[in-house]
Amino acid sequence: MEIPFQLALWGVRVAFLLVLYLFLIRAFASLSRSLRIESELAARNALGYLIVQRTHAQGPRVGERLPLRALSSIGRDAANDVVVNDEAASARHALVELTEGSWWIQDEGSTNGTLLNGSRLARRERLRDGDVVEIGRIGMRFESQVRYGSA
């Protein structure tokens, strides 16, 4: 076969691979975009936040606002609503809950316990604006976005 035809065929083959990769990149981009939108939505519509105050090198940054939903699990496992990356944290460590306008926190039977304002949680306790929750080496200040009594 003549050379120009073979060159054109080579071009088509390369173009096929190129389009395959362009499609892959676009698919990946829309995947990551929708994940980002999701986490932004979660952050904007949060009912409350845990704001990191004390941490360690591998943990979240100081000042990072971890969004809370009406029922949020806290723990080391990635499936939790709030993931605490600390070796002293249990896979499922604690639970924060908003019921009838007030916030509550309870320990989920963690190995090393949860500190609320410096004292170890034994039972379900009220959680108020400005309270400090400590799990392992990570300390977080609680901030509610819900006005008390109105809900």
């Binding site: 088509v12 083959r13 096929f16 389009v19 395959l20 362009l22 499609f23 676009r26």
Partner: peptide, 12 residues
């Protein structure tokens, strides 16, 4: 891109 893929594939 799907359309391009099928077109180029058949051409090759």
């Amino acid at each position: 891109f799907v359309a391009l893929l099928v077109g180029l594939g058949f051409a090759a």
